[in-house]
């Protein structure tokens, strides 16, 4: 019983990182119609920021190991990822949407190369380890500290959810949706389309950075291998399956897809012999890709379609 419970707790904690990323993407893609292909990159920025600020001092790095409080690490992760989003947005948001996609894709790849090669800060492929986890020094039992962590996750998700719900229902959110639907019309009504897009983009990137930081302080070890493009695709599948433009959909989609992903993982380990693990892993990614493409073709609005708001 306790095994199942601790598995469920673990499952929902990891799922939380996807939920938060999916909510961050929803503000960019779901509400404003911006295609960010660098989710893994902004997630990594948050993870490394928190790891460097809160982590221990390693013998082989020249920068980092500040041992700051975790909450400070998370706040800085939001800020640094937001700044990364600001830089990308400033350059590309005035251009055709393809350029944003290409640039965010490039950012994610470049950041991975930096994480892999700037060993004096990131320890390269060896990664940063022994990162602090909240409550881990208070409770010896990993079960209790995981329960605490799950509570933190739920609190954070609730806060983000309500903040985003308020934001998208506000006049600000209405402008975002109007930009998504018809950019020229929004511009004609005197809205500074670029500024609104930039704000939404920075907000989304900051949220993704927070997800990365929470991931780092939970698994306590990060390396460039954790931030591959498959992560970006997973988050897209979650948001599109759940329902883009619907914050509850973003959450539901993340849970559903993460459950399927975890279940297939256990299934592969259970029935596939080690010789065919590579093929099985490839097959699983093909299925995820197929789900994405099929959703785009047959049900682009997702499980929980966007609600139509009528003002007044």
């Amino acid at each position: 019983m306790i095994d199942i419970l601790s598995f469920l707790i673990f499952f929902f904690i990891v799922c939380s990182f996807y939920i938060i990323s999916s909510l961050g993407l929803n503000i960019q893609y779901g509400f404003t119609g911006m295609f960010n292909v660098g989710i893994a990159g902004f997630f990594a920025v948050g993870a490394y920021t928190s790891a460097i600020l809160t982590g221990p001092n390693y013998a082989d790095t020249i920068f980092g190991g500040f041992g700051l409080p975790i909450i400070l690490g998370w706040v800085c992760a939001i800020i640094v990822s937001g700044i990364a989003g600001l830089l990308v947005g400033l350059i590309t948001l005035k251009l055709r949407e393809d350029f944003l996609a290409i640039s965010t894709f490039g950012i994610a790849i470049s950041l991975q190369l930096v994480a892999l090669n700037v060993e004096s800060v990131t320890r390269g492929p060896n990664g940063l380890y022994a990162l602090p986890k909240p409550f881990a020094h208070i409770f010896d039992s990993p079960f209790v500290s995981n329960v605490c962590y799950l509570i933190i996750c739920i609190v954070v998700i609730t806060m983000i959810y309500y903040a985003l719900e308020r934001a998208v229902r506000s006049p600000w959110g209405r402008v975002l949706r109007s930009i998504r639907e018809d950019e020229v019309a929004a511009e004609a009504l005197g809205k500074n389309v670029f500024m609104y897009r930039l704000q939404a983009f920075i907000l989304g990137c900051g949220i993704m950075g927070l997800a990365g930081a929470m991931y780092a302080n939970f698994v306590r070890f990060i390396s460039p291998q954790d931030f591959l493009p498959i992560f970006t695709i997973q988050v897209y599948v979650m948001l599109i399956v759940g329902g883009k433009g619907n914050n509850l959909g973003a959450i539901v989609g993340a849970i559903v897809i993460w459950a399927l992903w975890s279940a297939s993982d256990s299934l592969i380990n259970f029935i596939v012999t080690p010789d065919f693990q590579t093929q099985a892993a490839a097959l699983r990614i093909i299925i995820v890709g197929m789900v994405l493409v099929l959703m785009l073709v047959f049900k682009p609005s997702g499980i929980l379609p966007e609600k139509k708001h009528v003002s007044g």
Binding site: F35, V37, A101, Y236, I240, I286, G289, L292, V293, L296
Partner: peptide, 9 residues
Amino acid sequence: IAAFGLSLI
């Protein structure tokens, strides 16, 4: 997005 998914497939 479809092209991105396709590349993965």
